[in-house]
Amino acid sequence: MTRFMLGRALHSLVALLALVVLVFFLARLTGDPTNLFLPMDASLAERQAFAERHGFDEPLLVQFWSYLVDLAHLDFGMSLFQARPAIEPVLGAFPVTLRLALVTMVLALTLSVVIGSVAAYGPGGLFDRIASLLSILGASTPDFWIAIVGILFFSVSLGILPTSGTGTGWHWIMPVGVLLLRPLGLLTQVVRAAMIGVLNSAYVKTARAKGASPRRVIFVHGVRNAMLSVITVAGDQAAALINGAVIVETVFGWPGIGNLMINAIKQRDFAVLQASILVTALAIFVMNLLIDIAYSRLDPRIRAG
């Protein structure tokens, strides 16, 4: 098991490094990186001072090394518009997104296990068909659009929910609802398929032949096996959730990392963009590692290998 975990951790590390390299070289690819880091209307003096400060006149490998050393110190340079280290707004915004993502993920997992299991119990039945249709609908709806329509309906027409901000519980309803759409639909389908597979499996036959009740069959023999396939997908969903968070935070004006990134792009604040992307990536890799641990806990066949 430790070998398996070490292997996975190594893969995550390689992926993270690949991203760091990608960010570095993409930034240099455009020619003069001052164009990236400084606003379009920066004066020549400003550009020169900037280039000297960051050593853009040095050889590329030297630059890469000092870039790596800076990263290790969480030094992403200065934010141009906030006149403070770029990492500061990122660390401020990160918990907001994390909370939003966690609440959504927990809700999506719980709801999908319940809905998917019930649908799997009577495949082809009315509940199953409605659940399937809704999950396809969830996968087909543009999240930014449904967010706008939600604001139009609940805030503008009915006036019962706030349009933006993070103050009260009411503020959470629409963002979480919109963010839930995609993972809930997908996970429900996955739980359903996995559960149908498990319920038709030979070992469930054995359990029934032992005299196990339907409840015991589902919860003792079913859920744990079905969770194996759910967990593998949940990892990809965690990454996809960030996609949704960018949209949701933009539309609902949440001071999260997605919002920060979009603003950084609009203000051409490359240091902040770079910091937020690397911090997000780090978070996702930690998440994937946790998922791997959970997987190997649940599946003894992995543990042995």
């Binding site: 070992y203 036959k205 054995t206 032949a209 196990a212 023999h221 649940l298 066949r301």
Partner: peptide, 21 residues
């Protein structure tokens, strides 16, 4: 209450008929 206690069964392919986890 009868199955497993009074009458029980074994199958052809024991690997798939045992819970892997």
């Amino acid at each position: 209450s009868l199955y497993g206690r009074e009458l029980s069964i074994i199958f052809q392919d024991p690997l798939t008929h045992l819970n892997p986890v």
